[in-house]
């Protein structure tokens, strides 16, 4: 049973805002990105390393810098405490599974350290699909 999206958003924000690895270099980690889980979409807006807002019901024209799109099953694999090989990161899953990286990837690269650390927090809070 998938966790409720509002509950998930609260957990994800709390984990991010209190993560020492992100916060020690959080200044300028400012961008927005879409997690497209097929059955559910959310837009995460970051400002200086903190979650400014999580849009849990994005409208078609709501903006973001870049997007990660994959099947719900792939997102569930991302969220396992110890993911299977090829589901253990965005590079692995985009090379070998169905993850697509879209949008302004320069923004992703500019924020790659913190984005990567934050993405792995899904292993602690799960995903809402």
């Amino acid at each position: 049973m998938a966790v409720d999206v509002k509950t998930w958003a609260s957990k994800f924000k709390n984990l991010t805002d209190n993560d020492e690895t992100i916060q020690c270099m959080g200044k300028y980690y400012t961008c927005s990105f879409l997690y497209d889980m097929t059955d559910r979409k959310v837009i995460v807006e970051m400002h200086d390393g903190k979650v400014k807002n999580i849009n849990t019901d994005p409208a078609p024209l709501d903006p973001y810098d870049f997007a990660l799109r994959a099947s719900a099953q792939t997102w569930r694999e991302f969220a396992k405490p110890v993911p299977k090989p090829m589901f253990h990161g965005i590079w692995a899953a985009s090379f070998c599974e169905d993850l697509k990286l879209e949008g302004n990837l320069l923004v992703l690269m500019q924020n790659l350290r913190n984005f990567t650390v934050q993405f792995e927090l899904l292993r602690k809070c799960g995903v809402p699909v």
């Binding site: 090989p85 590079w91 350290r113 990567t116 792995e120």
Partner: peptide, 20 residues
């Protein structure tokens, strides 16, 4: 890429070449 922090792109770009 000159518009990104190359040190961090390289380091975090290979992060998930490692096992969790």
């Amino acid at each position: 890429h000159p518009h990104a922090n190359a040190a961090q792109v390289c380091a975090s770009g290979v992060w998930d070449l490692m096992a969790p």
